[in-house]
Design a protein around this nucleic acid. Structure first.
Lengths: 205, 205
DNA sequence: TTCGATACGGTACGTATCGTATCGTAGTTG
DNA sequence: CAACTACGATACGATACGTACCGTATCGAA
């Protein structure tokens, strides 16, 4: 059972305990190097050199370079893009999706994009992504949909997961597959238009 | 200007011409090895060995292993998932999205997923993806939306690209970020439910 | 205090793959 | 025949991999 260093419970084992400052310097070095050289060119040896630690110190904590990045990113998911609950479902999603879009636009998106990319060929990363990035948010979001149906704001018979796919799917689509230019332009205006479109539907009423 | 070997115009130049069988055997070897070992472990040397060619023969045609995979995949995009035009926009997208979902479920999806993943750290692959996989289909799809608005089937004022994001975004979301289990379950029933939800909207009428 | 256990920075090692260069041979054009 | 390019093969220096040590540092328990 491999453990992420940041999630360690630090049981009272015999021997010298791991230095948290060492862990932090490795995480910091990984993100810095990734932003500078691109996460493609990230190497364990490079991270070790930048952090001023030995390779063995890194391999004692993580199995490879990508696990370090994952740890660094997932450390504060809840802080960066929490699900906000407002009076209506529409307003809840509008606000929550704006936060996600904001994180995609910024430095967080520049890290998350290669991370999701790498997850396509790295099963453990895939699982970590599902667990730390998606599942928690989904759970709350489903409740918002159900509450909207109960209150009469939303149509009866809606499948919560499909609703969430329709709302959040476009964000990931735009993040991962920009088809015009290179810029991810997930502006607030785009979110508003998207929410209006999906909530209102496509058919003429 | 690097050229893809499959797109070569094969001008009448002096010297020995490239053997098309050699090109085909390289493309075949790349896909086979990718499926067997995972596209992560794909190497130029491995492809050369499997195809029975020298490394230089590969480097004469492609700059790296991923370009070979991209060539092999994009060769027949139009054949695998064309945009179908039906009497209504709703039926057009329902049929077209079913085809995309079918390709995602099959072997094509197993290749496209790592390819999109790699595109997150490979700019040229990113561009090739936008050009060969997305742009052509988008163009036709936008017309379908506009026609739907003109005919009165769809609401006036809809932004075609946002409509397409709402429809296709969920498919990519499910392909790249499965959050329950490992199976991509883009069934026909899911597509139907998705189309119904997006076309009908979320709000109670 | 002594002792076992683990962390730490550092280094050496064999393996794998990269992308380039250079053979000699084969096939095509002029 | 001459010029030119494709082709398979191999050698090459360069990186990064992951493992195995080393000697030292820091903990808990006896």
């Amino acid at each position: 059972m491999k453990e992420n260093a940041t999630r360690e419970e630090q049981k009272k084992t015999a021997g010298r305990p791991r230095d948290p400052r060492t862990t932090r310097s490795i995480l910091k070095a990984a993100l810095e190097l990734g932003m500078e050289l691109g996460f493609d060119g990230l190497t364990v040896e490079g991270i070790a050199a930048r952090a001023g630690v030995g390779k063995s110190t890194i391999y004692r904590r993580w199995p490879d370079a990508w696990s370090i990045v994952a740890d660094a990113v997932f450390a504060d998911v809840a802080r960066i893009a929490p699900v906000l609950e407002r009076a209506t479902a529409r307003e809840s999603f509008r606000a929550s999706m704006r936060l996600v879009a904001r994180s995609f636009r910024g430095q967080h998106g520049e890290i998350l994009r290669p991370l999701i990319g790498r997850a396509q060929v790295d099963k453990s990363l895939r699982l970590a992504l599902a667990e730390h990035w998606l599942s928690a948010r989904r759970e709350i979001s489903r409740k918002i949909v159900r509450r909207g149906i109960a209150s009469g704001e939303l149509r009866a018979g809606l499948e919560p997961d499909i609703v969430l796919d329709a709302l959040y799917g476009p964000l990931y689509h735009r993040l991962l597959l920009p088809y015009e230019g290179d810029v991810v332009h997930l502006s607030d205006a785009y979110i508003d238009a998207l929410v209006d479109t999906v909530f209102g539907g496509l058919e003429r009423k």
